[in-house]
């Protein structure tokens, strides 16, 4: 499979990364090389093979419903670049 310039832009959009117009072609070329390389997987017969999500064999453990954390707004906000009145602050969200 190979990707076009528009797909590169779509991926950048979904990734929230800026990609300058003059870099699109180079990125596209690099991606196509990588995708061509991973295409070797096509030669593997995976009919009737279940995907392996995790090597973990243990089932999910369940936690007791207890309040064990919280009341630490200061620590939660300590690293925030901008905060006001106890809130995280960001530029206006446009709907």
């Amino acid at each position: 499979m190979s990707i076009d310039a528009n797909t590169v832009k779509k991926i950048a959009f979904l990734s929230h990364l800026k990609i300058e117009d003059d870099k699109v072609a180079a990125t596209q070329e690099e991606f196509n090389k990588i995708l061509q390389w991973v295409d070797q997987l096509k030669e593997v017969d995976t009919d009737n093979v279940e995907p392996l999500v995790s090597v973990n064999n243990e089932h999910l453990r369940l936690r007791q419903d207890e309040v064990t954390e919280g009341n630490q707004a200061e620590a939660v906000l300590a690293n925030a670049p901008v905060k006001e009145y106890g809130y995280f602050v960001v530029p206006k969200v446009v709907e």
Partner: peptide, 18 residues
């Protein structure tokens, strides 16, 4: 760039993220 780490501002939230 919202809760920690480096933030580069932008006009709207999406700009700031990107």
């Amino acid at each position: 760039g919202l809760r920690y780490g480096n933030r580069v501002d932008g006009e709207h939230l999406d700009d700031m993220y990107t």
